[in-house]
């Protein structure tokens, strides 16, 4: 564990000095996290990929600001979540419908219920920006409310309340959709 931590710190130092291979290692380590936050939030693969690339470019230009590997992860989550919310607000004025709006059978695990998976995806998409991001950070990144509060720059109490209300809203919508499907 300590060895891995030291190795990550060394990679970070090398990347800050302009080492391309070290920076590539950082990108490879964090690309799934950055891309998935953007994809789950925006539901458009092309836009999510573009946004993730921009986040890493921004990181490349600001590597000197990063103090540790832990700081790097938090920095990436913060920048990605803020950019996603900004992008979503811009898209409201020029809406784009991506292929990701449709269910992706190849990406759904065989054990999961495809109907439930698709329905949950759709329900998450209907949430307003902040609750949607809180849900993604909580359940994709497994972050605690205190960490989410720090990342999104909002009070912890607000995060807890958003989380509680968003879950209640999602549960309610799911129940309604289930009843409608049965009827």
């Amino acid at each position: 564990m300590l060895f891995r931590l030291n190795q990550a710190a060394q990679v970070h130092v090398l990347a800050a000095r302009g080492d391309q291979a070290a920076f590539a290692e950082i990108v490879q380590e964090h690309q799934a996290m950055v891309f998935s936050i953007a994809l789950h939030f925006l539901r458009n693969r092309a836009v999510a990929e573009e946004l993730a690339q921009d986040v890493f470019l921004h990181l490349f230009r600001n590597l000197n600001e990063i103090q540790s590997p832990g700081h790097l992860t938090n920095w990436l989550r913060r920048v990605t979540s803020h950019r996603c919310i900004d992008q979503s607000r811009q898209q409201k004025y020029r809406p784009k419908v991506g292929l990701e709006a449709a269910p992706e059978p190849s990406m759904v695990p065989r054990t999961a219920d495809p109907f439930l998976t698709e329905m949950l995806d759709r329900l998450i998409r209907t949430l307003p920006e902040k609750p949607r991001m809180v849900i993604i950070l909580r359940y994709q990144e497994d972050m605690e409310p205190t960490e989410i509060a720090e990342t999104m720059n909002i009070p912890v109490g607000t995060v807890k309340s958003i989380l509680h209300r968003a879950l209640a809203l999602l549960r309610g919508k799911r129940e309604r959709e289930r009843k409608e499907a049965r009827a």
Binding site: V27, H40, E49, Q53, T117, Q140, R174
Partner: peptide
């Protein structure tokens, strides 16, 4: 419900060549 949410929001890998595209830029 939370388990299902976690399952839905699993991390996904970006398309092939993502790192190369970033490095090129």
């Amino acid at each position: 419900f939370e388990t299902q949410l976690r399952q839905n929001l699993k991390r996904k890998q970006p398309p092939m060549g993502f790192t190369q595209k970033v490095l090129l830029q």
